[in-house]
Design a protein around this nucleic acid. Sequence first.
DNA 1: AGTCCTTTGCAACAGTGTTGCAAAATATTT
DNA 2: AAATATTTTGCAACACTGTTGCAAAGGACT
Lengths: 141, 141
Amino acid sequence: MTREKDINQMLKDHGLSSTETRRTILGFFHAADKALAHADIETMGTVPLDRVTIYRTLQSFVEKGLLHSIPSADNAVRYALCKDHCADGHHHDNHVHFMCDQCSRTYCLDEITIPRIKLPLGFTACQTDLVVSGVCKTCQS
Amino acid sequence: MTREKDINQMLKDHGLSSTETRRTILGFFHAADKALAHADIETMGTVPLDRVTIYRTLQSFVEKGLLHSIPSADNAVRYALCKDHCADGHHHDNHVHFMCDQCSRTYCLDEITIPRIKLPLGFTACQTDLVVSGVCKTCQS
DNA sequence: AGTCCTTTGCAACAGTGTTGCAAAATATTT
DNA sequence: AAATATTTTGCAACACTGTTGCAAAGGACT
Ligand SMILES: [Mn+2]
Ligand SMILES: [Mn+2]
Ligand SMILES: [Zn+2]
Ligand SMILES: [Zn+2]
């Protein structure tokens, strides 16, 4: 089974019709070993992709459980492939993320789960985001 | 010692000259029991404050250790008063933050410290942000 | 191939944050 | 207290992120 077939199937499996743009963008995420922001995707392809289409594609991918979003302090949400069987708005990726202060590269630390936080009375947790920033392994002098 | 004297002194103590706008904005933070975003501050006063001045004031306050910033998924950084003796870019507020999905109110959970995360080899941590989202105590039905 | 429905591309817009520069306010010196 | 030096403010202009409406193009299905 070739990679294109794979990407095609992945879209169908998550209830998305297989279009050129979606295959391209999903391909970018499979090729990259890091999280991608909207701005990255905009300049990655040979043919430039429409800004709005990228936004809508990313939204669909998050909704359908293909990608999860990673908050950041620099106001540019990044996205990464879901490893677990996330689907239909039910995500299970509660792992730590790391963002490098020098290269801005953002990593999923899939093996490190976010510890459960005991909240004060009256607060109910729905989601927990934990982002560590510092220097990544490739920027280490 | 009156509140105005207090605010005045706080500015001086952190190496900032005491100006009308700075006193006003610092006053807002003392009055609020929640984190404030730029947009909040813009509409809070009787006389509207200049957008750019607010941005620069918030920057100065963070640099000088009066405020700390709280990242969020909705691309609007919030700010809250530092409790500890933060100064000159050295912050010590490593507590958990909570953001309500319904009212967007953001709380500092000062008593809950962020657990230390063991990173993979080659990664060096500099800062850790932990934001829990869900339903806050006032929105609980 | 033809039909139906979804997705795309474009324009237009709203929100967030930054920079440069002259005028005003604050701090410091005389 | 007045003059001077330094910082801060306000304005205009800009860059970037993200959203919405709508007609045209593209995919799915028979
Ligand atoms: Mn991840
Ligand atoms: Mn806080
Ligand atoms: Zn790096
Ligand atoms: Zn609430």
